[in-house]
């Protein structure tokens, strides 16, 4: 890990560079490839935003590992949030793009960072409104601790030590931010 002092603020910033990022992503894909249930249609669904881009990347890696992904989808959870009241005019609804029947699929639900668990709670509600999947498995690139709900990831690319749970964690992606990296800030 590289440590950098940010200019001016005096805040400690830690950065996982693109090599470390890719190793975490590969780690995640390996775990999924090893233990995902076979014999049912497999769908990979990313949570907006960034989870959708990560899901795309994961699908590519899984294909290389001979895991056939039958469906891809994007989930927007704005309408299922439990903090809509607090967000004022800020929450923007975007489309959920799941153009297949999720019933009886094994769904790999993908997000970038798992923190309080509230996003995943909303995503689970959104998914079951679309049908009855055989199972939903949760894959996250970074598990940073700090859960407020009893939610647990099945596959984790990078687990941060629990002492980091007060930090701000941001995942940057090549596709949306120009570079793959993970930033931790005090």
């Amino acid at each position: 890990m590289k440590d950098e002092k940010s200019v001016g603020g005096g805040l400690m910033t830690e950065i996982y560079d693109s090599e470390q990022f890719l190793s975490a992503l590969n780690n995640l894909a390996d775990q999924i490839a090893q233990s995902i249930e076979k014999g049912q249609p497999i769908a990979i669904v990313g949570i907006r935003s960034r989870g959708d881009v990560l899901a795309d990347r994961l699908a590519g890696l899984l294909k290389e590992k001979n895991i056939k992904i039958d469906h891809k989808g994007i989930l927007d959870i704005t309408l299922y949030r439990d903090d809509l009241d607090q967000k004022g005019g800020q929450a923007r609804v975007q489309a959920t793009e799941i153009n297949f029947d999720i019933t009886d699929c094994i769904i790999i639900l993908v997000d970038d960072v798992l923190f309080t668990g509230r996003t995943v709670r909303a995503a689970l509600d959104a998914l079951v409104d679309l049908g009855r999947p055989r199972a939903i498995r949760l894959a996250v690139l970074v598990d940073r601790g700090g859960r407020e709900l009893p939610i647990h990831a099945d596959f984790v690319g990078l687990k941060l030590p629990s002492g980091e749970s007060n930090k701000h964690v941001q995942v940057m992606l090549k596709e949306t931010d120009g570079e793959d990296k993970i930033i931790l800030q005090d």
Partner: peptide
């Protein structure tokens, strides 16, 4: 949705 959200937010 929008008017309710603006109201709750205010």
């Amino acid at each position: 949705f929008l008017v309710n959200q603006a109201h709750q937010g205010s």
